[in-house]
Simulated scan of single mutants.
Amino acid sequence: MTDQTLPLPDHREESSTNYAGPRIPRRRPRPAPRITAVVVAALALWAVWLTWDTFVASPLGQRADQLALEGAARGQNTLWELAEPVLGVVSNSFIGLGLAAAVILALARGRWWLAVQVAILVGGSNLTTQVLKHAVLDRPALLDVPRADINTLPSGHTTVAASIAVGLLIAVPRRWRPVVAVAGAAYTAATGVSTLIGQWHRPSDVVAAILVVLAWGAGVCALSSPSSLDAPQDGPQRGTSGAAALLLLGAAGTGALAVGALGSVRGDGWGLPLGGDLTAYMGGMLGVVAVTLGAFALLLLVRQSTARP
């Protein structure tokens, strides 16, 4: 009699359980790539200070930077025809349109936190540049030249160009990042070199701006959330290693030439048969290209690693 009083199984509950299926653990960002991103950001900030300390706070550094500025007068009429349109693109409208494009792209992919990361990157980079230039860093008048005490480090135009390029690098899908990294590096380098051609900035100003964006770009990658991760089927892309290797190889080559030119300006190293201002100018251009290529290679690797599911 007692067996007949046992409750019958609830088939509705069983079918409901079978329909829902087992719970799948939510993907979370891996800690190691995020720690690496923090280290890259910290080193980039330190490099900003080192750039200022070497080329602004010391007489020898100021001399090399000033020679590069004066060397830009050579051939400027011809080069400015190429540089002026590049600099003309950079404006408040450009910032708004570039930021909107990156944010909309992230939202279209259903990545709301990724859109926030892009906004933090662009806003933080440009605000940092203005604060450093006008409120934190100074320029001691160590040389007898006009406006010797007016600080111009970091470059605002270069910061705008680099931050928009890195914002797009962060927002696009995984397979497109190598292409965007190479294109963004080329555009940023062109903008930075154009400010040298127009004698708007010295090489150290441009280098510091790129390093500011590198710090913010790596920093926001360290803030990755599940919304920032790639889809599970997006595994490693062969294009990533190829693009990173190309950028790093270019950085090593131009960097070696820039160091040689700097040594020549200081009176040691190469004995180039060129005037000191032209050597410094060419070395400054090469240094800008080297730092730009290296920064975008790092950002590509950091973004891909922090976004890997």
Rank of each mutant, 00 (worst) to 15 (best):
residue 3 D to C: 09
residue 4 Q to N: 11
residue 4 Q to M: 15
residue 7 P to E: 11
residue 8 L to N: 07
residue 9 P to Y: 07
residue 10 D to A: 11
residue 14 E to F: 11
residue 15 S to C: 05
residue 15 S to G: 06
residue 17 T to E: 12
residue 19 Y to L: 08
residue 20 A to K: 01
residue 22 P to A: 15
residue 27 R to C: 10
residue 36 T to L: 02
residue 38 V to C: 12
residue 38 V to I: 09
residue 40 V to E: 07
residue 40 V to F: 12
residue 42 A to N: 04
residue 42 A to S: 14
residue 52 W to K: 07
residue 59 P to Q: 15
residue 65 D to G: 10
residue 67 L to M: 11
residue 67 L to A: 05
residue 67 L to D: 05
residue 68 A to I: 06
residue 68 A to S: 03
residue 73 A to P: 11
residue 78 T to C: 01
residue 79 L to E: 08
residue 83 A to D: 02
residue 86 V to S: 01
residue 92 N to C: 13
residue 93 S to H: 06
residue 94 F to S: 00
residue 95 I to H: 10
residue 96 G to N: 02
residue 97 L to W: 06
residue 98 G to F: 02
residue 106 A to K: 00
residue 107 L to Q: 08
residue 108 A to R: 11
residue 109 R to P: 11
residue 110 G to Y: 03
residue 111 R to M: 09
residue 117 Q to P: 05
residue 118 V to I: 08
residue 119 A to Y: 03
residue 120 I to Q: 10
residue 121 L to T: 09
residue 121 L to W: 08
residue 124 G to I: 05
residue 125 S to Y: 00
residue 126 N to G: 05
residue 128 T to Q: 02
residue 132 L to W: 03
residue 132 L to M: 13
residue 134 H to C: 08
residue 135 A to T: 05
residue 140 P to H: 11
residue 143 L to S: 14
residue 146 P to D: 07
residue 147 R to N: 10
residue 148 A to Y: 01
residue 148 A to E: 04
residue 156 G to A: 10
residue 157 H to F: 03
residue 157 H to S: 09
residue 157 H to T: 11
residue 159 T to E: 03
residue 160 V to P: 05
residue 161 A to G: 01
residue 163 S to F: 05
residue 168 L to Q: 02
residue 172 V to D: 00
residue 174 R to L: 15
residue 177 R to G: 13
residue 177 R to Y: 09
residue 177 R to C: 12
residue 178 P to Q: 14
residue 178 P to Y: 09
residue 181 A to G: 10
residue 181 A to R: 01
residue 183 A to E: 04
residue 186 A to D: 07
residue 191 T to D: 00
residue 193 V to D: 02
residue 204 S to D: 02
residue 205 D to A: 07
residue 207 V to F: 02
residue 207 V to I: 04
residue 210 I to Q: 06
residue 211 L to F: 12
residue 212 V to N: 08
residue 214 L to T: 06
residue 214 L to A: 08
residue 218 A to P: 08
residue 224 S to A: 14
residue 225 S to V: 15
residue 228 S to N: 05
residue 230 D to A: 11
residue 231 A to T: 15
residue 231 A to L: 13
residue 233 Q to M: 12
residue 233 Q to L: 15
residue 234 D to W: 15
residue 241 S to E: 01
residue 244 A to T: 13
residue 245 A to P: 14
residue 246 L to A: 12
residue 246 L to P: 04
residue 248 L to T: 09
residue 248 L to W: 00
residue 255 G to Q: 07
residue 256 A to E: 01
residue 257 L to Y: 13
residue 257 L to E: 04
residue 259 V to Q: 07
residue 260 G to N: 01
residue 270 W to Y: 06
residue 271 G to F: 08
residue 273 P to F: 11
residue 274 L to C: 10
residue 275 G to E: 09
residue 277 D to L: 08
residue 278 L to K: 03
residue 279 T to N: 10
residue 282 M to H: 06
residue 282 M to I: 08
residue 282 M to F: 00
residue 283 G to V: 05
residue 291 V to I: 07
residue 293 L to S: 14
residue 294 G to L: 10
residue 296 F to S: 08
residue 302 V to P: 03
residue 304 Q to R: 00
residue 305 S to E: 12
residue 306 T to M: 05
